[in-house]
Amino acid sequence: MNVTVRVWRQGGAFGEGRLVPYEARDVSPDMSFLEMLDVVNESLVASGQPPIAFDSDCREGICGMCSLVVNGVPHGPDRGSTVCQLHMRRFKDGDTITVEPWRAAAFPVRRDLIVDRGAFDQIIAAGGYVSVGTGSAPDANAIPIPKDVAESAMDSAACIGCGACVAACKNASASLFVGAKVSQLALLPQGHPERVARARALVQAMDDLGFGNCSNEGECEAVCPKEISIANIARMRREYLRALVLGTDR
């Protein structure tokens, strides 16, 4: 199959960018979307042009590194999957496909389709961890946790930090990411003691880094490759209100 990809090309962090069309010829429908870009890059390199810069690592949908907006949707048209798991059979011969980087003030473009998602690391550094000394691993059943609570915490912990939630949000809000991190730790006994201070610190960091407000549209939930629910955002708000009422000393 033959497709046209319109790719955002931007020489560097401060350069002007624009969409550039490339022809991808004789693409196998069984290729992944990233492999199709690899093929385009090979022809670009062969003709002496700089290849399209894009992020990828595991290419099996678990690392959260790939980050492309395909035809206006982060991670492309498939639900519950990263863009590395998108295959060319999802498109038709002759299609024109638009590929853009994540767009957010907090995720500046470094080159072409690569953005700096360090803002997420800064949010985690602000308190997205458990600081109590836990010693060595306890016995499996030493801390009883109800099954439904463990499942709920695991659903939140499934976040791979790819940033698609921010990319999909019309306000570039990081609420789903922060909600997942707050929930994952607040639900479990190990994270419980610091839950109030953590909620406050993470929301503060999110705001300071220039992410927008949550409009409760749920586009984030719809594009999330791990299908993390916006119930996590509601829990983040409840935790934050708890911090507002109780203060952060406890």
Partner: peptide
Amino acid sequence: WTDRAARPIAYQMTRSAGGRSRK
């Protein structure tokens, strides 16, 4: 105002993801 500042450069193309979105 904050939300506008949070995405200074707009997408060339945007579509709703559908599914569970309430957009």
